[in-house]
Write a protein that binds this DNA or RNA. Structure first.
Lengths: 335, 335
DNA sequence: CTGAAAGCGCTAACAA
DNA sequence: TTGTTAGCGCTTTCAG
C-alpha cells in the first residue's frame, strides 16, 4: 500500500485532466471518449486507486447495496443453519454480484422492526430482499407501504403489495402427494406446520391430491427442524404404531429426521413407508435411501428477485412470480 | 414514511439545539448531558430519523462494516452450499452484530485479488474476516501486508503474519483416528485432500495416531464434497474390495458421501467399517447410523475472530488462537 | 456542557 | 468531449 491514499483530485492531477473527467471515466460514463476512459482506468489500477464509496454514496444518494434479511419466525428453532435458506442466500449473492450489487447480510436483531428506517433512510442499502415470509408479514408490509424497494422469497400466491418470488407450493404439495399415491401409499401423513405461509400451500396441495382419491388426511404439526420431525414421528409410532404408509414432509430436513426415526425401528423405506421431501438439498441425494424431493429452482428465483428489485429501483413495479418445481424421484419412493 | 427525509439540521431546528449537539447525542457521546441525550434520541425515534451512514462514514472515515469473504479454492466444487462454512458465516454475523458491526458478504468474484484496495481503500469496510484459508494464501497475505485489519478462520498453527482462529486440526485428526483404533479398526483410510491447509493438519494427526501403533496409512485424496467421497469410495471398493475397516473423513459431508457408498453395498457401519467425520453439522446427528464427528466450536471462534479484528482496528495486534474441539461419539463408531 | 464552522471525497448540473 | 463548481449530510476541532 502506498503511504497516502490517493483521491480523485490526485489522480486527476497525475493525468492532467479534471476530476469530473476521471470520475466519469471510472464510472464508465459514455460521455468520455473510450480512449480517455481506458487510459484513466489503467492509471487508476496502476496507482491502486479506488473510489471512496462513502463519498460517492453521499453524493449520488445511491449505495449499490442490497440488504438481505433472513426472516425467521421468533418461535422456531429453524435457524441460520438451515441449509436451504442459506443456499438461497448464496444464490442471491451471486445474482446480486452479477449486477454489480453488494450484499449486506442482516437479520431482525440488527434491523429491528422498522426496516425502511434502518436500511433505506439511513442509506445503508437501496433495497431489501427478504428470505422467507415468516408467519407474520407485518414488518414486510410496513416496509413495502413505506415505499421501500423490496422483494420476498416466499409463496407467490400470497396476496401482497410487494412482489413475491417462489415455487408453486400448492402444486409442489400436490404432485408430491400424487407421487406417493402412485407408489401405492394409502395413508399419507403431512409432516409440518401449516401455520407457516409456504407450508400452508403445500398442505393445501396435499389435501387436494388426497381429496381427488377420497383418502383422508392426517397431520403431524411440528417445527421445521430435523429433530422435531424425528421426535414427532417417534412419538406417533409409540402412541399409534405404524398407522401410515407414506409421508409428505414439508422440507428435506424434516423428511430426513422422520427417516431416521423410521430406520431406527427397522421400518423399510420405501416398502413400508414412502417418503417425499421438499427443497432437494444436497443431503437428499446423499442420504440412504436417497430422498425423493420437490426441487425448487432457487437459482432462477434469485435472478428474478434481483431483477424485480432493480425494476423497483428504477421506479417500475413488479409482480409476484412463480418458478418451476420438479419432482426428483429417488429411492425413498421407488417400489 | 414522511414526505421528506429529515436530516440532522432539521432535527436540530426542531429541538432548538445545534447540529453538533444532536450528532453527539445520537452517537451517545458522554459529553452531552444524559437528559439532553435522552430527549434527542426520543425525538429522533419519534420522527423516524436515521443518520445518513454515507455522510457519517465519509466524515468519520469509519464504516462499522466488516467484509466476510468465503474463500473457496478455484478448483474445488465445495461451494456456497457447504453447510459448515455457512454455519460459520451465520455465527460470525451474530458475533459482529453484538458489537454493532454489519456484515458485507463477499467473495472473490466481487473482491478480485486486491482485497485491500477493494474493501479498505474504497471504504466499503473497516476490516476483513476470511472464512477458509484455501490452498493458496497469497490474497490473504497481500492484504495483511498492506496493513489491512484482517482475521482468518483456518488452522491456527499455520505460520502467518495475521491472526488465524480455528480448531487444533492436528489434535482433531489424532483423536478421531485414535477413537477408530479404540473401536478396533486396523486399516484406517484417510478421506480428503491433504493439500488443503486445515486438512493437512488433520492428516498429520491421523498419521501420528497410526504411527503410535505402527499401523500403515492409506489416503484417498478427493475434493471436499459428498459426491466426490461417494465416487471415491465406490471406486476403491470396485478396484480393491473392502480393504479397510475404518474411515477418518476430512468433513462430515465427505463422511456422509462415503457412508452412502458403504450402505449401498450392505457394508455394515460400524461393524464392518467405522467412520468419523469432522465439523459436527446437523446432518451428522440425523443420519442413520448417526455419524461420530469432531465438533468445532464455531461459536467461540466467531467471537474470537471479531474480538481480534476489533483489536486490530484499535491498532493493537492479535495472535492466532486455538479453540476447543470435542469428539462426539455416535453410532458410526459404536461397537 | 454546547455551538460555529470547516471539510470529508465525490458527482452532476451547467458552462464551455 | 471536457472543465468548473456547488454541495450531498454528517462529525469534529476549536471556541466559548
Amino acid at each position: 500500500m502506498n503511504n497516502k491514499k490517493l483521491k480523485l483530485t490526485d489522480l486527476a492531477k497525475l493525468a492532467g485532466v479534471s476530476t469530473s473527467t476521471v470520475s466519469r471515466a471510472l464510472n464508465n460514463n459514455p460521455l468520455i471518449k473510450q480512449e480517455t476512459r481506458d487510459k484513466l482506468q489503467h492509471l487508476a489500477k496502476q496507482h491502486n486507486f479506488s473510489l471512496n464509496t462513502a463519498a460517492s454514496r453521499l453524493r449520488s444518494q445511491k449505495t449499490n447495496v442490497v440488504a438481505v434479511i433472513i426472516n425467521f419466525d421468533g418461535d422456531t428453532e429453524q435457524s441460520i443453519n438451515d441449509p436451504f435458506l442459506l443456499k438461497v442466500v448464496g444464490e442471491i449473492n451471486l445474482a446480486l454480484n452479477k449486477q454489480g450489487l453488494e450484499l449486506l447480510l442482516s437479520n431482525s436483531f440488527m434491523a429491528g422492526d422498522d426496516w425502511a428506517n434502518y436500511f433505506i433512510n439511513s442509506r445503508r442499502a437501496d433495497g431489501i430482499i427478504v428470505v422467507g415470509q415468516g408467519k407474520s408479514p407485518i414488518n414486510i408490509e410496513a416496509a413495502a407501504n413505506a415505499g421501500v424497494p423490496l422483494v420476498v422469497w416466499g409463496d407467490p400466491k400470497t396476496p401482497s403489495n410487494y412482489p413475491i418470488v417462489g415455487s408453486d407450493n400448492f402444486v409442489g404439495g400436490r404432485i408430491a402427494t400424487e407421487h406417493l399415491l402412485a407408489c401405492g401409499a394409502k395413508h399419507i401423513l403431512f409432516l409440518g406446520d401449516p401455520a407457516h405461509a409456504e407450508i400452508a400451500e403445500r398442505y393445501r396441495g396435499y389435501l387436494a391430491a388426497l381429496a381427488a382419491v377420497k383418502a383422508s388426511p392426517q397431520v403431524v404439526s411440528i417445527d421445521i427442524t430435523s429433530s422435531a420431525a424425528y421426535l414427532g414421528i417417534n412419538q406417533l409410532l409409540v402412541e399409534k404404531g405404524l398407522c401410515f404408509d407414506g409421508i409428505m414432509a414439508c422440507s428435506d430436513m424434516v423428511a430426513l429426521g422422520a427417516m431416521k426415526a423410521l430406520k431406527e425401528r427397522y421400518i423399510s423405506i420405501p416398502n413400508d413407508v414412502a417418503l417425499v421431501g421438499f427443497d432437494d438439498i444436497a443431503m437428499a441425494d446423499i442420504s440412504h435411501p436417497s430422498l425423493s424431493s420437490i426441487r425448487q429452482n432457487t437459482q432462477r428465483a434469485s435472478v428474478l428477485l434481483v431483477e424485480k428489485l432493480l425494476a423497483q429501483l428504477q421506479g417500475e413495479t413488479a409482480q409476484s412470480q412463480v418458478v418451476d418445481i420438479e419432482l426428483i424421484n429417488r429411492q425413498s419412493t421407488k417400489r
